[in-house]
Design a protein around this nucleic acid. Sequence first.
DNA 1: CACCAGAGTTGAACACGTTCAACTCTGGGC
DNA 2: GCCCAGAGTTGAACGTGTTCAACTCTGGTG
Lengths: 235, 235
Amino acid sequence: MPGDAASSDGPRPVSGKGAATRAVILETALASFRDRGYDRTTMRQVAEAAGVSLGNAYYYFGSKEELVQEFYAAIQVGHRHRAADALRSRDLVDRLRGVLHAGIDEMAPYHSFAGSFIKVAISPASASSPFSPESAVARQAAIGLFREVLAGSDARPGGPLARDLPELLWLAYLGITLFWVHDTSPDQARTRRLVDTAAPLVGRLVTLSRLPVLRAAAADVHTLLTALRPRDAHR
Amino acid sequence: MPGDAASSDGPRPVSGKGAATRAVILETALASFRDRGYDRTTMRQVAEAAGVSLGNAYYYFGSKEELVQEFYAAIQVGHRHRAADALRSRDLVDRLRGVLHAGIDEMAPYHSFAGSFIKVAISPASASSPFSPESAVARQAAIGLFREVLAGSDARPGGPLARDLPELLWLAYLGITLFWVHDTSPDQARTRRLVDTAAPLVGRLVTLSRLPVLRAAAADVHTLLTALRPRDAHR
DNA sequence: CACCAGAGTTGAACACGTTCAACTCTGGGC
DNA sequence: GCCCAGAGTTGAACGTGTTCAACTCTGGTG
């Protein structure tokens, strides 16, 4: 395999001139994603609406997928913004539930297109994957959000898992997102119910994890998470 | 075997004449998936290698994705076959670990292509999704495998979760598969380690779930799973 | 001014999955 | 033997994401 080494570095050139053009293309694409969804957004339409040629769009964005990546970034910023509200409470369950609902709120307008977006995110080779090196910054920001959920609460989790909890909550959030994508109930009510059930459960487990009986299980989970993590990841 | 099984799974015509043609196309496609992977398998190549026209391939299979669906089915049959070995033990952890490793063994030859396959499986709209109505039969078979893991063991799980356990284990297996797809370690060693850690953990949790302290948490998990399930599904 | 390297830009071209109107073949009724 | 409904089959055509050789424009250097 020649292994085309991907583009490895940052997206594309960002000198003075092209930056404006790049921004126009990006805005046009994001608007089209919002209005038409992923599949119905064609590179030709984006290029035309942005007033550039098809080839020029590919000069700034190596693929349609790179556009999606920027889309994720925008959503994540929105999530963090919304989450601030929920972080006023000191109660762990309230904080967690609030942050999770904030995430669903932020994604809600895009639910009908989520099915096509997730195809891109789930592919291991994709830079948009939550686990990809390219997503490292966004990933750490997301994990940081859950670290904040824990740190600002009056619950003080202990045990061998305390340090892993932010990452575990982030993984759970990914799972909830995956569920949300598949949720066809009106207004994704089942996902809401899932969050309302899961948040207290997490609170209960955090409390229980101090019990000696659960020490061994918690240690197992810690080992499992260690096995799961790629060699390099630390924070 | 998959050719003339008069079962009602074929979304396309299955009368006498075309069945042979259908089988040839299918075999050709599966071989190409194995040898070249998903993306490098083109419908034109499959059609040509099968000795039919492009349009004719589409007469029997509505889309390339439908071919993938059959691919999954073939893998699942292989998994069940391999799993039989592991089901000789009576120890729950041994059984579970064996069945999980059998699944990884079965998928191993396709790991390099898994990234492109999972794109298809993960899409909610796709019939290949593990949660789709079209996959109901395969899904029940898979859940049944884990029911067997539990039923044939000397551990007798109790509590409010006992009935949910096969489904939970199946979900965990899906998660492991998802991890496997992203696992770039040599020979997917990290996934192996994950299984070796997760199996004893499950055993421990099954034992612990009898404790009164965990009753409430177990009930929460049961509620969560109920919220998770689509309206119709039981059995 | 003349020149040029290189960023910026273009549209044609490619391979792909998918569709479709039109064709051929087959078996059964008369 | 004739016919025909419908299964089986065909290749051209469409729209897509992506590539690429060639072009234009820009800023700096001599």
